[in-house]
């Protein structure tokens, strides 16, 4: 199981692994939004929490189809399914690898982008906390979507259509945490709900992902 995680991480970091793609996308988005909206600090500060969360969401989405598609093409998914590791565990490890290579870097770079968007000072802590709590759910839900669409023609586009509606609760509560933080309000309710969704998704969705993966492989 750890071997699978290490292999996925190694593959992501080697040439052509696509590591940093999501990060670059996140950065570009944070540059494009002020160019489109205008440079007024008040306007940008108001929309910064939402933009950062939507940006993180889209950056996550970008690399989802790689979770299973490459393993499916070269046949290792078949071999993994017949290996002695439980597929549920393998799926969880793949989601964890996706989070480590996509979600975690987004969390770490988000304060810098907050700076670009004039995010109010009180909100930085909550931006990092909410992304750190919310992005694992994005990876796990995305892994489910990737498992659903593995091996389908035009799977990438379909994947976005399937996964984005599932991201709505995480987005709402995550952005709410940052917005409230920016206004100096109490954030405990949305934070608890965000953590609840993440915990539920991490605990239950790998079973659904492994189930649909088995169906797709047969």
């Amino acid at each position: 199981m750890i071997a699978l995680l290490m292999r996925d991480l190694r593959l992501a970091f080697r040439a052509g692994g696509g590591f940093g793609l999501g990060l670059a996308f996140f950065l570009i988005l944070a540059v494009l939004v002020p160019l489109g909206i205008g440079p007024e600090p008040q306007t940008l500060a108001r929309i910064a929490p939402g933009i950062l969360w939507v940006g993180a969401l889209l950056a996550c989405l970008l690399s989802l189809d790689r979770i299973f598609a490459l393993d499916f093409e070269d046949g290792s998914l078949d071999l993994l399914a017949t290996a002695p590791v439980p597929l549920e565990g393998a799926v969880s490890m793949k989601a964890l690898a996706h989070w480590l290579t996509t979600g975690l870097p987004l969390v770490l770079i988000s304060p810098v982008l907050g700076l670009l968007l004039f995010l109010p000072g009180e909100a930085y802590l909550w931006l990092i906390v909410s992304l750190a709590l919310g992005t694992p759910a994005l990876s796990v839900i995305g892994t489910f979507g990737a498992a659903l669409t593995v091996g389908l023609k035009r799977g990438g586009l379909l994947l976005s259509l399937l996964v984005l509606p599932l991201y709505i609760p995480t987005l709402v509560f995550g952005a709410e945490v940052v917005s409230r933080g920016a206004m100096g309000l109490a954030v405990d309710t949305p934070l608890a709900l965000l953590a609840g969704i993440t915990a539920g998704a991490v605990a239950i969705l790998p079973f659904a992902s492994a189930h649909v993966l088995r169906i797709n492989l047969r």
Partner: peptide
């Protein structure tokens, strides 16, 4: 099989989204 699982998972998230929407608009 796949759409049935999507329907199941989607139902849970649809309900969550409903409460998120209620929460969200009361929020600000």
């Amino acid at each position: 099989d796949l759409t049935a699982v999507l329907c199941l998972v989607g139902s849970v998230f649809a309900v969550l989204s409903r409460y998120a929407a209620i929460f969200w608009n009361q929020g600000l």
